[in-house]
């Protein structure tokens, strides 16, 4: 039953696909960004869960502990989270500008307005 022991990956797949579904199926641009955030977090969970060592502890050195989880994914994801919020903010800023010039954030309506113009 090795596939049950890999349950962390199945959680990641479900989360990732939920985020992906929102990005594809939802026409609202803000909702799409929320989907991207969920997708992003699922990747974070994938990395962190790969760094976990059974019986290990947080990678802060203590004299009487000798088994630590892998610190490398922690570093990568730590910076990725902050970069993620910065890029999400940039995306939201774009959405705000789209709303101001089109009056809507629904993809279908934006497409309609573009088609009307030409």
């Amino acid at each position: 039953m090795s596939w049950l022991a890999q349950y962390n990956y199945w959680v990641v797949i479900v989360l990732m696909m939920t985020g992906f579904y929102i990005v594809i199926a939802s026409g609202n641009l803000v909702k799409k960004l929320m989907g991207l955030t969920i997708f992003q977090t699922s990747v974070f969970i994938l990395y962190i869960s790969m760094g976990k060592v059974r019986g290990g502890t947080a990678p802060i050195l203590e004299p009487d502990i000798d088994l630590y989880s892998n610190p490398l994914p922690h570093v990568l994801i730590l910076t990725a989270i902050v970069v993620g919020i910065a890029t999400t903010a940039l995306g939201l800023a774009l959405v705000v500008r789209i709303k101001e010039s089109y009056g809507t954030v629904e993809e279908a309506e934006i497409q309609q307005k573009d088609n009307d113009q030409c």
Partner: peptide
């Protein structure tokens, strides 16, 4: 739970705090 205390710290501050706030402002 997966021993990534630094990451949890960041996610709690960024994801639950700032990110929610920005989404609300955009809404």
């Amino acid at each position: 739970v997966m021993d990534a205390v630094d990451v949890a710290f960041t996610e709690a501050a960024v994801g639950a705090g700032i990110s929610t706030l920005l989404m609300l402002t955009t809404l």
